[in-house]
């Protein structure tokens, strides 16, 4: 049984069906990349997995337990599935350290000392140990995003959802963030990432999924999707990406 199982997932905003029946299975320690044009439903799919958006049909299971639908403790579910956003979404009124410590202290019941030790250790790992007492607006975009990743993994989640985490960064700051994701992949973190960094997706993914207007058009190992896609639409999308110089 796969770690994350999505079956027949549909999401409708008003009269607009944004996800039209998605089936996807992700095993433990797998890294899955979601690619597709802007508006194809990548963010919505990620937000449905940790129930930030209620779904209209189908189901989502995590580790054998159905986590969609009524009667589920969504707060507990979300502790197990971390999320990192395109715009970082750090808490501006809290220092870097406090951003990271809030979850472990208030939700996992850790002592301030234990939470701080963990935050410091994680910050050191992403070369930000010297920024622990800074505020988010004193950091560069790349630094903020690294803090956001640390904030998510400080909850010791079993999976991570990364929503275009480098799209808001200046080009020279992309690498410092992707390096961390690469490390996480090597450590065996289960991850689903929506991304436009095709080179990176090709390198770290076990599976690449192409979304097109709310349908999962094609999925497979990166060599196949990038080297020899079956769908004409996938070929066209990748051609546009190459022309934009992103692959």
């Amino acid at each position: 049984m796969a770690f994350i199982e999505i079956a027949g997932l549909r999401k409708i905003y008003g009269s607009h069906e944004v996800l039209k029946g998605i089936d996807l299975e992700v095993d433990r320690h797998q890294v899955v990349s979601l690619i597709g044009a802007s508006g194809s439903g990548k963010s919505t799919l990620l937000r449905c997995i940790n129930a930030l958006e209620p779904i209209d049909a189908g189901r989502v299971s995590l580790d054998g337990d159905v986590v969609s639908g009524p009667g589920v403790d969504q707060n507990r579910l979300r502790r197990k599935v971390g999320m990192v956003f395109q715009a970082f979404n750090l808490f501006p009124h809290l220092s870097v350290e406090d951003n990271i410590m809030a979850g472990p202290m208030r939700l996992l019941g850790e002592s301030r000392e234990a939470a701080r030790d963990q935050a410091r250790a994680l910050l050191d790992r992403v070369q930000l140990g010297h920024r622990a007492s800074y505020y988010p607006d004193q950091l560069s975009g790349g630094q903020q995003q690294r803090v956001a990743i640390v904030r998510a993994i400080a909850m010791r989640p079993e999976a991570l959802l990364l929503d275009e985490i480098t799209s808001a960064l200046d080009p020279e700051l992309v690498a410092e963030v992707l390096n961390i994701v690469r490390d996480l992949a090597r450590d065996g973190m289960t991850m689903i990432l929506a991304t436009h960094e095709m080179q990176f997706a090709r390198e770290v993914s076990d599976m690449v999924v192409f979304l097109e207007q709310g349908t999962l058009l094609e999925k497979g190992p990166p060599e196949q999707i990038f080297g020899n896609p079956t769908e004409a639409r996938t070929r066209q999308f990748l051609k546009q990406i190459i022309e934009a110089g992103r692959l």
């Binding site: 937000r47 502790r79 956003f85 715009a87 979850g103 208030r106 939700l107 904030r151 998510a152 909850m155």
Partner: peptide, 12 residues
């Protein structure tokens, strides 16, 4: 997005 961030961590 501040709501999203906090809720995604597991805050009610």
């Amino acid at each position: 997005s501040q709501w999203s961030a906090a809720r995604s961590l597991g805050f009610s």
